[in-house]
Design a protein around this nucleic acid. Structure first.
Lengths: 136, 136
DNA sequence: CTTGCTGCAAAAATTTTGCATATCC
DNA sequence: GGATATGCAAAATTTTTGCAGCAAG
């Protein structure tokens, strides 16, 4: 991990993201930040969000942001996603899903739960181990 | 829902998607289908996948395909997503997550579980009810 | 036949990148 | 002062759309 600097831009992006609870898209956050820093560029927002995600200072929501994927199997089942390459695997064991009837969130009507798994696929793990990575 | 036709293109897209277990992206599926139908266009694949998703014949994976969203809160918590507008809500109650140690998938090493909720936000529900929708 | 669908190509939307300059430490 | 970051703008990616002709029912 290279050294990072707390630039003005990075601080403002972080501050503004922490102020809201809307889980903004990049463009939404860009608009918010531009109100305080009219000259900031969209590229800077992208680059900083990447960095802040890597350092763990912010969270990138998993439910969004890569390419669309489709599944020809429509029976209920679950998915694992490789955190490195994005590959998806199926899980067909018949474990019952947690219930969502006890979940209540102000502003929302919850209708379904979904359980998803993160992991790493064999190929990516082999590749990571091959180059002597620290934590896999 | 308007009437739909089972065109050649639609049938081939469906057949090929059902053959694979790779959860292909649109472009991957386009490449596969083009081997059988060299003149099919990418737009047709997009349009058919949309349609087939609406009719429930295929599944669009939720974990991918919209815009990136970020969260300034990094304490462990869960999210609800409005299935209509995509808005995200936070759930901070301290329900323990299911364990992933009992999950084993060939080809993957599972490292984390995530529980997500689907639902509809108050605004979208009001809008849907206002225009006398059937099922909300 | 009629209406939904296709191919093509252009446009829109989202994300990444190159490069010269500015700025943090 | 040196490495890291920025702004700008161009490019790359992914998705959507308009339109004239084709084809399923």
């Amino acid at each position: 991990m290279p050294k990072t600097r707390m630039t003005n831009q990075r601080r403002v992006i972080l501050e503004e993201l922490r102020k809201v609870d809307t889980h903004p898209t990049v463009d939404e956050l860009y608009t918010i930040v531009k109100a305080r820093m009219p000259h900031i560029s969209l590229g800077t927002v992208y680059r900083n969000l990447d960095l802040l995600t890597e350092t763990g200072e912010v969270l990138k929501l998993d439910s969004a942001g890569s390419m669309r994927r489709y599944d020809g199997r429509i029976e209920p089942h679950r998915h694992v996603r490789c955190r490195v390459c994005g590959r998806i695997g199926d899980i067909f064991d018949a474990e019952e899903s947690p219930s969502c009837s006890n979940v209540s969130v102000p502003g929302f009507t919850v209708t379904a739960v979904r359980v998803e798994y993160d992991g790493i696929c064999d190929e990516c793990r082999a590749a990571a181990e091959a180059q002597g990575s620290q934590a896999v």
